[in-house]
Design a protein around this nucleic acid. Structure first.
Length: 503
RNA sequence: GGUCCGUUCGUCUAGUGGUUAGGACUCAUGGUUUUCAUCCAUGCAACAGGGGUUCGAUUCCCCUACGGACUACCA
């Protein structure tokens, strides 16, 4: 590994299905890694054992796979800096947290939940808006800074529960340069002595992510804006651990907001606004959510939409496949402000990608029974014909169903209105003309239609819609001559005869 | 409440110390398609407000307003 190699990580916590905000973070990390010939790691941050959800880790891996975001190193693929799951790295964190204690950068705290609550409510009563465990309040709490050395040792010896808190310095400006936002500066008086190490022997996110990022040689931390307020704490931790020169570059991404702009998009918003918020479906216990995949979106369209929500290429192109996204991606072109989610535009992206998909690609999504019953050539032709007027891949099969079987139902309104004796007679006549077409090509069929209409002095609208309906069952679709051509002469004649005899 | 971050058409966004402030989605209208969809054309529509700095600010600075994130032994 070269010294300046770009190494980024996506580090979700397996507390449920990953929603599109998380996927976008993963995507930006991935694009950045590929663009810079770097590595993309997947790390599972499962330090909160209480919130683990069964199947969430698998869901994350499956989601990335569907999005074509390839993991170079991480839980699913391994790598030289593993393990990549924090619950399997407990011993690693222990070492560093005790180093911090030794160097007076952290301390033991023995306060119970009740005592913490009391402290907070007292501070509130005193008019403190944000009650913190900080340089002031810690002097009134039970910790290794207030207790005698002997008592601390005694408590530790007898196995009292404790947490380890970081010792935040007084009145110190902590600043760092964010790739997206520029310099961000916070006074340490606004930080509290965050817990680094929990009483269950697990580190908190703050400690674990800093230690892991350092050990895994992460060069850029690209994550959501919700982490911006705790970034100074992380910066301080790098200093405390003596890794100042190894501090990664930070980039805090703008959030994806609800369509009405009130807050960040959440897992529950899918039901509320009527669009998927998850990449693939999630089905567990009483909870079930449809995914973009199952809704009929293509991964390319999904990525394209996500990428453009907060980033732009600097020109007016909007449609990109993964390689093009990689080619064009830059952190410098990521916006600062949150983006409200717009499902209509998302659908438009899918439509654009569907039109670019080849018939071959589209039929991969067809039901396997169709692939068995029809030739690939036929299915590809159908797909190419239908895709022009579909928005989703899974619509193609449905819209073109009359290519796979005779219509079972016919447009009721039109039949009622137009299927009269005069028109039946005309259909019989046109059937005769169709039967006489020697080479059954789209062009010849079209010519046959036109000649017939001219001869009879009819407008297209007078007879063709009914012809369309008796052959395909529905009023709209691709040009009729194209449909006839694909169906073949024999099938067309048979369908028309069937209608004449049975409708 | 406190801290931090943000603010260009309804939405996603481009952009610059001097522009008719550009594109895309949506919507509307017209054209092509005998249907539907596509496609094409046209239209609607924005620099949050107030102070500075400047010959000149949408652009730079400050304030206000508004919005968001965070404020746990959650990540």
């Amino acid at each position: 590994m070269s010294k300046n190699e770009v190494r980024v990580r996506f580090a979700p916590s397996p507390t449920g299905p990953l929603h599109i905000g998380g996927v976008r973070t993963a995507l930006y990390n991935y694009l950045f890694a590929r663009k810079n010939n770097g590595k993309f790691l997947l790390r599972i941050e499962d330090t909160d054992q209480n919130r683990l959800i069964n199947g969430a880790e698998k869901y994350i891996i499956d989601s990335l796979k569907w999005c074509k975001i390839q993991v170079d190193e991480g839980v699913s693929v391994g790598g030289e800096f593993g393990p990549y799951k924090q619950s399997e790295r407990k011993d690693v964190y222990k070492k560093y947290v005790f180093d911090l204690i030794k160097n007076n950068k952290a301390y033991y705290a023995f306060d119970s939940n009740e005592e913490l609550n009391t402290m907070r409510s007292n501070l509130k009563k005193e008019g403190k808006a944000a009650p913190q465990y900080n340089s002031i309040s810690r002097s009134r709490m039970k910790n290794s800074l207030t207790l005698s050395k002997k008592e601390v040792e005694e408590r530790l010896r007898r196995g009292d529960k404790y947490v380890i808190r970081i010792l935040i310095p007084r009145n110190q400006e902590i600043k760092f340069k964010d790739e997206i936002r520029g310099w961000v500066s916070v006074n340490s008086n606004n930080l509290d002595d965050k817990v680094l190490y929990k009483s269950d022997g697990m580190p908190t996110y703050h400690l674990a992510n800093v230690v892991d990022d350092y050990l895994m040689k992460i060069s850029h931390v690209i994550r959501g804006e919700e982490w911006l307020p705790s970034a100074p704490l992380h910066i301080l931790l790098y200093q405390y651990l003596g890794w100042e020169n190894k501090t990664p570059t930070f980039a805090h991404l703008p959030l994806i907001l609800k369509p009405d702009g009130k807050g960040k998009l959440s897992k529950r918003d899918g039901a509320k606004y009527g669009f998927p918020v998850f990449p693939i479906s999630w089905d567990q216990n009483d909870k079930s959510f449809i995914g973009y995949k199952e809704f009929g979106f293509s991964p390319d369209a999904f990525n394209n939409m996500l990428a453009l929500l907060g980033w732009n290429p600097g020109n007016e192109n909007e449609i990109f496949n993964m390689n093009e996204l990689i080619e064009n991606f830059s952190l410098k072109k990521v916006n600062k402000s949150g983006a409200k989610f717009d499902f209509k535009k998302t659908v438009w992206f899918n439509e654009q990608h569907l039109k670019k998909m080849s018939g071959e690609e589209i039929i991969e999504n067809f039901d396997s029974s169709l692939l068995k019953s029809f030739s690939r050539e036929y299915l590809v032709s159908v797909a190419n014909l239908i895709k022009e007027r579909a928005k989703f891949v899974n619509e193609v099969e449905v819209e073109g169903k009359y290519f796979f079987s005779k219509p079972k139902i016919y447009d009721e309104k039109l039949i009622k209105k137009k299927w009269n004796d005069d028109n039946k007679f005309l259909i019989k006549e046109i059937l005769f003309e169709i039967t006489n077409i020697e080479v059954f090509s789209a062009n010849n069929i079209s010519k046959c239609f036109n000649d017939f209409l001219n001869k009879k002095n009819l407008n297209f609208g007078e007879i063709m819609p009914i012809l369309r309906v008796i052959v395909s069952g529905i009023k709209f679709g691709p040009p009729l001559n194209e449909i006839f051509f694909l169906l073949g002469k024999k099938e067309v004649i048979s369908r028309i005869k069937f209608a004449l005899n049975n409708l």
